[in-house]
Write a protein that binds this DNA or RNA. Structure first.
Lengths: 108, 108
DNA sequence: TGGTTACTTGGCAAAACAACCAAGCAGAGG
DNA sequence: CCTCTGCTTGGTTGTTTTGCCAAGTAACCA
């Protein structure tokens, strides 16, 4: 990575990298339906608890998730309500044939 | 990756992973100002041409970029006009203190 | 206090990724 | 035809990531 990255882009990379993993995206998508504790997330993705915990750390460090400890459990939630909108944006970054774009059709 | 991913999420992961690299994000951001050929991109990121070419392959495979050969040059462009909107969405997936969210303030 | 549950952290081996060099390939122009 | 430029592909090496096990920490309960 020779080129220096400005802080804004660096934060973007952190978020994108955090979400660019099958298990981590799955976790984040699941949290759109509400908070989950680590065990529930473990059942969802099927990995070892330690692996899940590390995934969650990465997502929290990137600012995607927030966590709250209640009793013995740690509950994870989306840090931002706009994640659904974000996913729509991801889906719109799509391979539209340039012919369509040249014809003035927008993909979003 | 034990849990099977549905095709939609798999595509999302590909896009997010492709953009979750400093050079690749830099390239994509630069293309918002218009098409660039490989040499120009090489000057931008400062990597070896072969490295740049591989980055571009990844971005094209993910559907983020499109390429067109004209003469000796290969020009790369954004596959979708909505990339600026996408970046806004990325920036909005932010670490807002839960206190703010609890108070009903939306981050986006 | 000791035990149990829930989670995190450290450490390690396997896998994936990144970046370089070298070689190959395709057009353009002698 | 040859050569040169622009880009891609193959190969190698070094780094990063991933995922498991084991050990450690924290909160609850008896």
């Amino acid at each position: 990575m020779p080129a220096r990255l400005d802080p804004v882009s660096a934060k973007r990379v952190a978020v994108l990298k955090a979400l660019g993993h099958p298990s981590r995206l799955l976790i984040t998508e699941a949290l759109m339906d509400g908070e989950l504790c680590v065990q529930e997330i473990r059942d969802l993705v099927g990995d070892d608890v330690s692996t899940v915990s590390k995934h969650l750390s990465i997502l929290r460090a990137a600012g995607v998730l927030a966590s709250e400890k209640r009793g013995l459990n740690v509950f994870y939630t989306l840090a931002c309500d706009c994640f659904g909108e974000f996913l729509k944006c991801v889906d719109q970054v799509c391979p539209v044939p340039s012919a369509l774009r040249a014809a003035g059709r927008k993909c979003c």
